[in-house]
Amino acid sequence: MRKIILVLISTLILSACAQTASREQVAQTLRDNPQIVFDALKRDKSQLMDILDQAVAEREDLERKNAQLRALADPLTPELQPGRIFLGAAGAPVTIVEYSDFQCGYCAQGQATMQELLRRHPGQVRVFFKHFPARPGSLEPAVVFEALALQKPEAAWRFAELAFANQRALADGSGRGLAALIASLDAGFKIDSARLKKDMESPAVRTRIEADVAEARRFGVEGTPTYLVNGVPVRGAAPLEEFEDLLGLLGRKDQVQAAKP
């Protein structure tokens, strides 16, 4: 009997988190049978904790989806300057703007997620890389990336991959790690070193990075990575499944709009 009631309580908890049952129902069940909870804790703490963890996870997932729906109604609009490089197809229906930091480990994870998303959805997604250099040693590689982008965009993207893969070398403070990464690009891309140095010192590059930071702060970005997927924020190194869910939501929204007379 107690096992049945415990299952009932678990179901009510999960249902309440999904907003299909009132909290009063759960509260009343617990008031009528308080000993059930104590017995369950004594006999199988791990099972009850698993139930509670699942309930919390489902509630968080529901809250995240509701937040996305609200953001879809009033999406953020980042500036996409002409000439700014991106990955993916120019006419892709989904634009992802990433605010990132070359010294952020979670940003390195996020970059791998973006690559997989592009691989899974050819022609459907494009990714713009913007800067939020908040950690020591992260401004310099941001400057190099933008300077390389002015000369050879493919070299800039390769540099980003190397920078994320060699964060410890970039963090030594001497500049030797950064110089080594730049030198490693020369064999494959024939970098014009004189032009690179000039572009790294140009006000235009610094202004672009400062504009990225100002825009990110205006949008409430407090940490990296942060993404705007067609203006809908995704904060942190979210799993690929979260981006896939959001792409599905965006697709359904487009279908609804297309069906309107």
Rank of each mutant, 00 (worst) to 15 (best):
A67G: 09
V205H: 00
L8Q: 09
E242Q: 15
Q35Y: 02
P136W: 04
D186L: 03
A165E: 12
A258E: 09
N230P: 10
N33T: 03
I85H: 04
K3E: 14
L148Q: 01
H121V: 02
E210R: 11
L76R: 15
Q257T: 11
A90I: 10
E58M: 15
R120V: 10
K3C: 01
T29D: 01
D32S: 13
A163K: 06
E140P: 09
Y227F: 15
D192Q: 12
G220P: 07
Q103F: 03
A147T: 07
A108N: 08
Q35C: 00
I4D: 05
Q111Y: 07
A237T: 02
E154F: 06
P133R: 01
I191G: 09
K197T: 11
L41S: 04
G251P: 08
Q109M: 04
A160D: 05
V213L: 11
I9N: 08
K3G: 11
F38C: 00
G123F: 11
P133K: 05
L12A: 14
A16Q: 10
Q25M: 14
P141Q: 08
P136E: 11
F86R: 08
Q28V: 15
R84Y: 07
P203Y: 03
E201P: 01
S138D: 12
E154A: 15
D50E: 11
Q81S: 13
G88A: 12
K253S: 11
P141W: 09
G220Q: 06
I182N: 07
E161V: 03
M49N: 02
K152M: 08
N66C: 10
V234M: 15
F102M: 07
V213K: 11
A89D: 15
D50C: 00
L87Q: 13
L48N: 00
R70H: 11
P239D: 04
Y99A: 01
L87M: 12
R120S: 09
Y227N: 05
M1Q: 06
A156N: 05
R217I: 07
K190H: 15
I4K: 10
F159D: 12
G223R: 05
D53A: 15
A73R: 12
F145D: 03
G110V: 05
V143C: 02
D74M: 07
A112H: 01
V26K: 01
A73F: 00
R119A: 14
A216E: 02
E242S: 13
V7R: 15
V232R: 14
D192E: 10
I191T: 07
A160M: 09
F145S: 03
K65Y: 09
V125K: 13
T113V: 05
L69V: 10
I36L: 13
D245I: 10
I182Q: 12
A211Y: 00
Q255E: 14
P133Q: 00
L246A: 09
